[in-house]
Design a protein around this nucleic acid. Structure first.
Lengths: 229, 229
DNA sequence: ACAAAACTTATTGTCGACAATTTATTTTTT
DNA sequence: AAAAAATAAATTGTCGACAATAAGTTTTGT
């Protein structure tokens, strides 16, 4: 129980179903397989040049991170994005990442905190160089959140957020094109959170992270409503 | 995304791996397969009279609810119970069930609340009849928590708590023999929580549930330390 | 006698084929 | 012609066998 080396995110993908999982996660998050479309096992098995055994194993893990939904004897579909789904997802995220911040303020060592600061500076630079490029912003933001979650040192929390929920979070952000004007504001919020953690003020870090995520949710929810649905 | 009919807890177990999952969950939680022992696929396949395909599917889902841990090409082991694990588990539980209470206060309809009250009365009776029988207390307590979680109406929350975390919770309680003197106190706490939900006071319900779970954790942690480890 | 390497054994991961179930199409009935 | 029943096609779930990897044992060398 000391650490959680189960998902292919934390170890190199040794087996064939590991590689499949990573590839399919990317494919679904990026929207290359349309949201809501049915998944044909024989078709995908041909496409990826594997048998159905590792494919089904990968699909079981895709279900685990809420990217597909399976019905026995009927098949699997890619999840549909919706405002209610986003709400439900971010309710959990607020709660769990708030907790992660509180625990990170207790459990992160000085070196980890310093690395976190470094990460923020680094992202500030790439952000200046590449104005408007949403990809870097996206990746940077995720790095930040991941490190804090890992800093909580709670294996279950790490597993739930990084291995399960975050793929859906990314899917919402990618498919709604998160290149908005929230860049610099998010940066300031990140900075404030780091300071709270460095001061070992878990309560404040918790509060700031909740607000940060709530703001992010509002942003995405707006986009979702603009797009008609 | 409206509801979550995926796990065999929410639909009747149609497939062979469904039945296997339910049986193995019970087996592990009750301790019939020793904590920490290795799981042999050929052996279990013979024991349950199935091929390895559905067995492996069931094992993938056992891993999801943290009852076993798998290492690629090396095999799977039943999880070991530990004080650190219990801590980590209950940290999450406090947070998520607190949230569940808050949401339940918003989203449960009058009928559900009434049923919840009925459940509590019913458990009071069986408890009086069968003094000291820990099984009924256990089942009753779980029923209570499950209903509130479902009352939150948040599919992700329901899935995470009922389908993933709660098996481990039960495993800790069962294997440490939770027949303690906390019976009547837990009953009063449950009553207070229901009242808060009925009054639509989500904040209070949240607080009371956190305390309730913290008390429960303290109880189990004590037992764990008594047993030497 | 101990350490390292080669070999043997056992377990896991993957494959192709078959059985069971669902979905789509055609046929029958009113 | 529309609805229902029967049939056909396709997809999912399961099986037994093989290949790849890891663990256990014996052999070899210093």
């Amino acid at each position: 129980m000391t650490d959680s080396p189960q998902s292919p995110l934390w170890r190199s993908p040794v087996t064939s179903s590991d590689r499949l999982l990573l590839e399919m996660q990317r494919t679904i998050v990026e929207g290359e397989i349309a949201s809501g479309s049915k998944i044909s096992e024989p078709e995908l098995a041909r496409k990826f040049n594997v048998s159905r055994a590792p494919l089904r194993e990968a699909m079981a893990r895709l279900e685990r991170c809420h990217l597909i939904e399976r019905i026995p004897n009927a098949g699997a579909r890619v999840v549909k994005l919706s405002t209610e789904g986003l709400r439900a997802l971010y309710q959990i995220r607020e709660e769990l990442e708030g907790l992660a911040c509180r625990l990170a303020a207790e459990n992160m060592d000085e070196q980890e905190i310093e690395q976190l600061r470094g990460l923020l500076d680094q992202h500030l630079n790439t952000q200046r160089v590449r104005e408007g490029e949403s990809y870097y912003q996206e990746a940077g933001d995720l790095d930040f959140h991941y490190r804090i979650i890992i800093g909580s040192k709670n294996p279950y929390l790490i597993n739930m957020l990084c291995d399960e929920l975050y793929f859906l979070v990314r899917m919402y952000r990618v498919q709604l094109g998160m290149n908005g004007p929230r860049v610099s504001r998010a940066f300031d919020e990140h900075k404030a959170i780091i300071n709270a953690i460095a001061n070992r003020d878990g309560e404040l870090a918790d509060l700031l992270m909740r607000r940060h995520i709530a703001a992010s949710r509002g942003n995405i929810e707006l986009k979702l409503q603009q797009l008609g649905k």
